Amino acid sequence: MAKPPLINWLDLLPPSVFRIGMNLWPPFLGSGIKVASISPDFREVKVVLKLRRYNKNNVGVHFGGSMFAMTDPFFMIMLMKNLGGKYIVWDKAAAIEFKKPGRGTLYASFTFTEDEIQHIRSKADQHSRYIFDKAVDILNDQGENVATVLKTLYVKNKETTSP
């Protein structure tokens, strides 16, 4: 007999409550990272990192670890919310390329289109699992690219078996 599916806590939270929870999460709170907005369909998330004395490095610019942390969970969570409980979603790898010193306030905007989500779902259904890369740019107040983070995401359909 099949086990009933577990209730995913993420499915129960509206975006506004999830945003507040993320802003109180110790790794974000301690780094000065703020989730500015989450769209109702969890397809767009905007994150802000203000330069503070506690997140500067020894040369007075943003600590790279805080910049990397501001990008950590969002693509995975957005996919979990949009694909549903039929799929396992994991961050498989990540890399950051620093392009210029991070000064002032930094911004990251994460998006998935309906077409991207359908493509991911289709690939995971066809091949049991789908591994792909998605990039997000970290921008400064002037809109300049300070860093690019490349996330490798793993999506597996729980109902199919591997070939």
Rank of each mutant, 00 (worst) to 15 (best):
residue 80 M to Y: 03
residue 106 L to A: 09
residue 156 K to F: 04
residue 150 L to Q: 06
residue 74 F to W: 09
residue 20 I to R: 13
residue 23 N to V: 03
residue 14 P to I: 05
residue 34 K to I: 06
residue 142 Q to L: 10
residue 15 P to L: 01
residue 133 D to E: 15
residue 118 Q to I: 12
residue 3 K to Y: 10
residue 41 D to H: 06
residue 123 K to L: 14
residue 104 G to W: 08
residue 113 T to D: 01
residue 79 L to T: 07
residue 132 F to Y: 06
residue 111 T to G: 07
residue 57 N to L: 12
residue 107 Y to A: 07
residue 129 R to I: 09
residue 61 V to H: 15
residue 1 M to Q: 07
residue 94 A to M: 04
residue 139 L to N: 12
residue 57 N to F: 12
residue 40 P to C: 07
residue 109 S to E: 15
residue 141 D to A: 10
residue 84 G to N: 08
residue 94 A to R: 06
residue 26 P to E: 08
residue 157 N to Y: 00
residue 112 F to T: 02
residue 82 N to W: 06
residue 123 K to H: 11
residue 144 E to Y: 01
residue 1 M to A: 11
residue 143 G to C: 09
residue 43 R to C: 03
residue 17 V to C: 12
residue 39 S to N: 02
residue 99 K to R: 15
residue 109 S to R: 14
residue 138 I to T: 07
residue 17 V to F: 12
residue 151 K to T: 08
residue 113 T to R: 11
residue 84 G to K: 12
residue 158 K to V: 15
residue 1 M to E: 10
residue 88 I to F: 12
residue 108 A to S: 12
residue 125 D to Q: 08
residue 9 W to D: 10
residue 64 G to N: 09
residue 18 F to H: 08
residue 77 I to Y: 15
residue 104 G to C: 14
residue 8 N to I: 01
residue 132 F to E: 06
residue 50 K to Y: 07
residue 25 W to T: 01
residue 81 K to H: 06
residue 107 Y to R: 11
residue 148 T to K: 05
residue 25 W to D: 09
residue 24 L to A: 06
residue 75 F to I: 07
residue 59 V to P: 02
residue 114 E to S: 06
residue 163 P to R: 09
residue 111 T to I: 14
residue 119 H to P: 10
residue 34 K to S: 10
residue 72 D to L: 00
residue 9 W to H: 11
residue 70 M to N: 04
